[in-house]
Computed example of a mutant assay.
Amino acid sequence: MTIVAKDLVWGVRQKTIVDSVSLTVAKGETLGLIGPNGSGKSSLLRLLAGLKQPQSGQVEILGQDIARVPRRALARQVAFVQQDTTTDTNLSVRDVVRLGRTPHRSALSGWTETDRAVVLAALERVNMNGHIAQGWQTLSGGERQRVHIARALAQTPQVMFLDEPTNHLDIHHQIEILRVIRDLELTSVIALHDLNLAAMFCDRIVVLDGGTVRACGTPEAVLTQQLLRDVFKVEADVECSLTGSPHIRFRAQ
């Protein structure tokens, strides 16, 4: 397994937010994290990526306990894409993606041909190579998110964590971004809000509720009428789409 999490516990001020969570992610798999607001998705994602330290439990990535891996070395293996990042500085697209090379360069080293090639390849992978000189502030929301992913790819990671990468995007850009992620040759863990998008693009889904795992499995095994009723407090019909993934039709109550 590429990722193995064992009995993770984390919280703040006497409140447990992630409670005894264990999970595994296979090489090349796309795992979706879903759950109601406040269920612990973002906190769990940051624990898995090593951005938060668990109060108890352990995360292994590529067979190593990440608590024992130096931060710089971990950043060469793991990339994290936030929901959104704002800046008042109007960097170019090239400069934003170059930030992904930081873990691979010393403070005094110059730019190498390898660095340039990796940045260009990352931009091409997300279809943003035609915007390389464009200013960050002039980009649309969907374009910015693709640049975020390109910056993560410039780290040349083996594992990518994404926290609601489709947040605030229209449906066209949501599908576009998730298609890009799915087609990457990486192990990915994605926190998602939209259940139908999770069903379309994730190999397996983990359902969180109150910081605990309520279900884990393929979309068709997890996204049942009973689970939607129990966890999300909604009535819905679950049908099989043309692609074979479940499609949820919510009922007006």
Rank of each mutant, 00 (worst) to 15 (best):
S188A: 15
D65W: 04
R68H: 04
W111E: 15
G211C: 01
H172Y: 00
L139R: 04
A152G: 03
L74P: 11
A49T: 10
P70T: 01
I190K: 07
K15F: 10
R146N: 04
Q77N: 10
R72Q: 14
N127C: 08
M128P: 10
T212Y: 06
L33G: 13
L91H: 09
P165E: 09
I66Q: 05
G211Y: 01
S43Q: 01
H148M: 09
D7K: 01
Q137I: 00
I205T: 12
L228K: 05
E143C: 06
R68V: 03
V159S: 05
A67S: 15
C216K: 09
R68Q: 13
T102D: 09
P165W: 08
T87P: 06
G110D: 13
G32M: 09
L51H: 06
R125M: 00
W111C: 13
V147S: 08
R68C: 00
L47S: 02
G63D: 08
E185K: 09
L242M: 12
G100N: 11
Q55E: 12
R229D: 13
T102C: 12
R251D: 07
T224Y: 05
K27V: 08
D84G: 05
F250T: 14
F201D: 08
A121D: 14
R125A: 10
I34M: 03
H247W: 11
I149P: 05
D203M: 04
M200W: 06
G28F: 05
V234G: 05
G11N: 08
D183L: 01
L33Q: 12
H148V: 08
A122I: 06
S188W: 02
L197P: 06
P103E: 10
I17H: 05
E124W: 06
I17P: 01
V59W: 03
M1I: 07
I190P: 13
Q226V: 12
Q55D: 14
G32I: 09
R68Y: 00
D163L: 03
G130T: 11
I171E: 00
P70K: 01
E176L: 14
H247V: 14
R101Q: 14
I171A: 07
E239V: 10
M128E: 11
D237N: 08
L120M: 15
Q158V: 10
Q225F: 07
K52Y: 15
H148W: 09
V213D: 10
F201K: 03
A5K: 04
